[in-house]
Design a protein around this nucleic acid. Structure first.
Length: 931
RNA sequence: AGGCGCGUAGCUCAGUUGGUUAGAGCGCACGACUGAUAAUCGUGAGGUCGGCAGUUCAAAUCUGCCCGUGCCUACCA
């Protein structure tokens, strides 16, 4: 008996079914390196229109997490897909290198070695920070590249390159020269332990036990009659702020009473006969805490009536002699306290705003950098704000200033590094004005808001979010009292306090930074920058460094504008949605303040990565998914697939099951590629290819589908909607190809003569499909696509990433055919259901053992004219009867025996015969044998 | 506590201006094939569309409240 398997044209390919990605991907990376893919692509697209996705710099201080992976993969998919559109999508990755976290790491190392940071020369300290950043930058670069991210890894940007530092300084110079950089002061979060101001992001909240006091302020001048001798009572958890008290606040609509104490407990500080004023809602509470047993109401009043009253500081007799006005504030509540809020303008943003900004009350300096109360202050001078609150309370009680002392455990800000409590402290700071008071009419805020109006947001809601933030934010405080960063390159006059605005000085500073880095600010004498026109004795050199958000906010200046291979504004900034407050925000302000427009045309935000249950990832929950591990076990392409199969505008989830699902999707696409590669083995378009008009209708339908998908892919690429692209490609592979077209054409492909029109048409179409498919998935499955491309073309000097999306001919479009075949498939689906029923009845096994008789409406029957229903349904035979009414399908066992080559049944072949073959196969076998 | 989002089958997602029994793919179950074979094909079971209350002839879709959840702020005397 002849083995006809040898005569069947089965798919043949080297492209393995299993990806083995963890091993394969590094090989493909090596191929790219050998090709010098990045540079080659740049050279080839030199004259193409640019597409600039500007990289928001990650912070160089640790290994990558899944959020980094999401971010960079999305950027890469966008860049590669724009490149597939023919653009020059040059991607320059960058890193944010300055800032507290790195600084702190170095300090930590010092502490371990028992060294004191303050004893290390600043230049040396900064060098260590620089080395630390360089190390992590390198680690992250390797990890990013392993994700398949294509970019200028040899020459990335960093905020700590000398050129960057000098341009950052130059940018600050612009704010200096245009008058919007000013010296002010404000209460800032201050860590007495680290002797530095902290950014709000550098603060975390934890429980803290505070000494609380109820302090009494003698009413000196009251708008309300009959309150002679009364005291207003405040409650505070920070007794150390009492020397800084300059006012108190009450709520306009809150009900208060003056109460004459009639009875007190044994240890009460209050005395019988005292008259105290409190909010009614808090009376019981205060009595309980201060040991007051009972009191008579002397007077009732509303907060509004008390406004304008003048009280005396509880320690007035000891030297705190200033007046304490009573102000109205809408933030006063009766949740706790007394209904009167003590206001220390130097020790709280709300206090500052109310007392200083709104009422012009001077802000005293009462606390030093180390948290020690100024020596010259009576009673409390030299005491520490964190350690001596109990003493402060005792002294005040002794002097008759209190009616109660207590304790409270509450949530309190702590330094995120030292975990020590922090305080608000007034400090001199440099600000960029949001321009509300700008004489030129249009301030920075207005410019920025206008710029947002002409920016595209993906998703659209980002516009609202950023707009609201810009509209409400206060002036930008640029100062950081730190060491690792770009110094604010400013001198101000010792006597007038006026900053020196001289472009020549700025230029000298910028030039010096460019040459030797901004360390020179700390190592060279001021005279070098001031030049001969100014005497350094007259000026103070600012030693603050700039907020790191200013560094990254200036990347458009030192990257986009500085590099010839990029341009500004960028087409797109893309980051996590937290960057509304961060990079999108600071970049916008920096650019609007210096150039009058945004540095981006579009802003795309993605969500955060959560676990499978939608919880945030945390070490304690044990639900952290490390990208390194996914790559190691599944491959980077799986991670890339995960990104595009998620709705990345919203939060994304990842976990074992989700990764499993992605692997399933991957296998489907990979197998489709493999089948196409195998089916098309040895295909030569010039010899074998056919023109569409010579093809069967089914082939022309597939070509039509390619034009439809092509349209979707291009449109969705423009709108960065890869989820839609992936879904459609997957469904195409799954539904149109594997379950339909491939299945039907197996017979043609395996058994028909290579010279037959049918087989040639099929192979021609499959070749087109393959080219489309590889190019469509290339931005997403960047490794697998190239692996397939290699298997297809076999050219070691090529890569799919050097090509554009395949371009199906416009002429292939045929919507009528699309509709017609949709109807045919609906009928086919009815038939497969009927076949399944017959199979379950044991009537048939494979569909080739069936013969079907389909009675259907004349309309439906007309659709099948000229088509072979049996081959469409993969049965051995079929009869179509044009009738009326509902479709009826009859399934019978096909007559005759099975052709030993094509496995179809024929009545001419005797049953139980396993060697005969059908006429078609006979012809083909003979023909092949003759060759 | 405030601002901006999200909540549709086990998983990832579609559901256009409110309009017939809410869709797809994966997974799952069952079956077929053994010439895509750690593949491939078929059939099927899964959803009170987060909850409640409204508007409407009609709501996954509009409104309000609530619950859960994410980011960003504020967590204060």
């Amino acid at each position: 008996m002849m083995d006809y398997k040898q005569t069947v044209f089965l798919p043949k390919t080297e492209f393995p079914m299993r990806g083995g990605l963890p091993k394969k991907e590094p090989e493909i990376m090596a191929h790219w390196e050998k090709l010098d893919l990045y540079k080659k692509l740049r050279a080839e697209r030199k004259d193409a229109p640019k597409f600039v996705l500007h990289d928001g710099p990650p912070y160089a201080n640790g290994q990558l997490h899944i959020g980094h992976a999401l971010n960079k993969i999305l950027k890469d998919v966008i860049n590669r897909s724009q490149s597939m559109l023919g653009k020059n999508a040059n991607y320059v990755p960058g890193w944010d290198c300055h800032g507290l976290p790195i600084e702190w790491k170095i300090e930590e190392q010092y502490r371990k070695k028992g060294k004191d940071k303050d004893e290390v020369p600043i230049a040396e300290f900064r060098q260590e920070c620089r080395d630390f950043a360089a190390h992590w930058l390198d680690v992250q670069s390797q990890e990013f590249q392993r994700l398949g991210i294509l970019g200028d890894w040899e020459n990335p940007y960093t905020t700590m390159k000398f050129e960057a530092e000098s341009i950052i300084a130059a940018e600050m110079g612009k704010f200096l020269m245009n008058g919007s950089l000013y010296r002010g002061s404000k209460p800032v979060m201050w860590s007495p332990v680290e002797k530095t101001a902290l950014a709000e992001a550098e603060v975390e909240y934890a429980d803290h036990k505070s000494v609380t006091i109820f302090a009494r302020f003698a009413l000196k001048n009251s708008p309300i009659e009959g309150l002679e001798g009364a005291h207003l009572i405040i409650w505070t958890t920070t007794p150390w702020t009492m020397p800084g008290n300059r006012a108190m606040a009450c709520g306009a609509d809150i009900e208060y009473s003056a109460l004459k104490i009639t009875e007190t407990g044994e240890d009460a500080l209050a005395k019988v006969g005292d008259i105290i004023c409190l909010a009614d809602a808090l009376q019981a509470d205060v009595f309980a805490q201060t040991g007051i047993v009972s009191a008579d109401i002397v007077k009732r009043f509303k907060g509004a009536e008390m406004a304008g009253a003048i009280a005396a500081h509880p320690m007035a007799a000891e030297g705190y002699t200033y007046e304490v006005p009573v102000l109205l504030a809408d933030y006063v509540t009766t949740d706790q306290g007394t209904g009167f809020v003590h206001i220390a303008p130097g020790h709280g943003p709300e206090d500052f705003e109310l007392a200083h900004l709104k009422h012009g009350i001077e802000v005293p300096d009462t606390v030093g950098e180390d948290g020690v109360i100024a020596e010259h202050l009576p009673l409390f001078g030299g005491m520490h704000v964190l350690r001596d609150n109990a003493r402060i309370a005792e002294i005040m009680a002794e002097k008759g200033g209190l009616i109660g002392i207590g304790q409270l455990t509450h949530s309190y800000p702590h330094s995120w590094r030292s975990h020590a409590p922090v305080i608000y402290r007034n400090a001199a700071q440099w600000f960029v004005s949001m321009g509300d008071k700008d004489s030129q009419g249009k301030g920075l805020r207005d410019t920025a808001l206008a710029a947002l109006n002409v920016t595209d947001f993906y998703p659209a809601s980002g516009q609202n979010r950023l707009t609201a933030m810009i509209a409400n934010r206060p002036d930008w405080c640029l100062s950081r009292q730190r060491a690792w960063g770009v110094p604010i390159p400013v001198f101000y006059h010792k006597k007038t306090g006026e900053p020196l605005r001289d472009q020549a000085v700025v230029d000298r500073i910028v030039a010096a930074f460019a040459k030797d880095g901004c360390d020179v600010w700390f190592t060279k004498p001021a005279s070098e920058f001031l030049g001969s026109e100014y005497d350094e004795k007259d000026y103070v050199q600012v030693k603050d460094i700039a907020d790191v958000w200013f560094d990254s906010g200036s990347t458009h200046a030192f990257v986009l504008e500085a590099r010839d291979d990029l341009q500004s504004p960028a087409d797109l900034y893309l980051e996590g949605s937290d960057q509304h407050r961060g990079w999108f925000h600071s970049s916008l302000l920096e650019s609007c303040g210096t150039r009058g427009h945004a540095p981006y045309k579009g802003v795309l935000t993605h969500g955060f990565v959560l676990d499978e249950q939608g919880r945030k990832m945390s070490k304690s929950l044990g639900n952290v998914i490390a990208p390194q591990k996914v790559i190691e076990q599944n491959g980077a392409d799986i991670l890339r697939l995960w990104v595009v199969s998620s709705d990345y505008y919203d939060d994304l989830r990842i976990g074992p099951e989700i990764i499993k699902r992605q692997s399933d999707h991957y296998r489907r696409i990979r197998n489709t590629l493999r089948y196409l590669l195998g089916a098309g083995a040895g295909f030569d378009a010039a010899q074998e290819g056919l023109a569409p008009q010579e093809m069967p209708e089914l082939e022309r339908w597939v070509l039509h589908r390619l034009t439809e998908l092509d349209k979707v892919v291009r449109q969705k690429t423009e709108s960065y909607d890869f989820h839609a692209i992936f879904t459609q490609i997957h469904d195409f592979c799954n539904g149109d190809l594997s379950a339909f077209y491939f299945d039907i054409r197996k017979d043609t492909l395996y058994c028909d003569s290579p010279a037959s029109i049918e087989r040639r048409a099929c192979r021609t179409v499959m070749d087109e499909v393959l080219q489309c498919l590889i190019s469509w998935v290339a931005p997403i499955l960047c490794f697998t696509a190239d692996e397939a491309w290699m298997a297809y073309r076999g050219d070691e000097n090529d890569s799919i990433h050097l090509h554009e999306y395949a371009a199906p001919a416009k002429a292939w479009q045929n919507p009528e055919l699309g509709q017609k075949w949709a109807a045919i498939r609906a009928l086919r689906s009815q038939i497969t259901t009927a076949l399944e029923a017959a199979r379950n009845d044991g009537l048939i096994g494979g569909s080739l053992s069936a013969d079907i008789r389909v009675q259907t409406s004349a309309e439906t029957a007309a659709l099948l004219e000229g088509l072979d229903l049996a081959s469409l349904c993969i049965t051995s035979s079929a009869e179509l009867i044009a009738g009326t009414g509902e479709t009826k399908i009859e399934v019978r066992r096909a007559d005759g025996g099975k052709c030993a080559r094509c496995w179809k049944q024929f009545s001419e072949i005797p049953e139980d015969n396993d060697s005969d073959i059908c006429t078609r196969c006979q012809t083909v076998v003979t023909e092949q044998g003759a060759v």
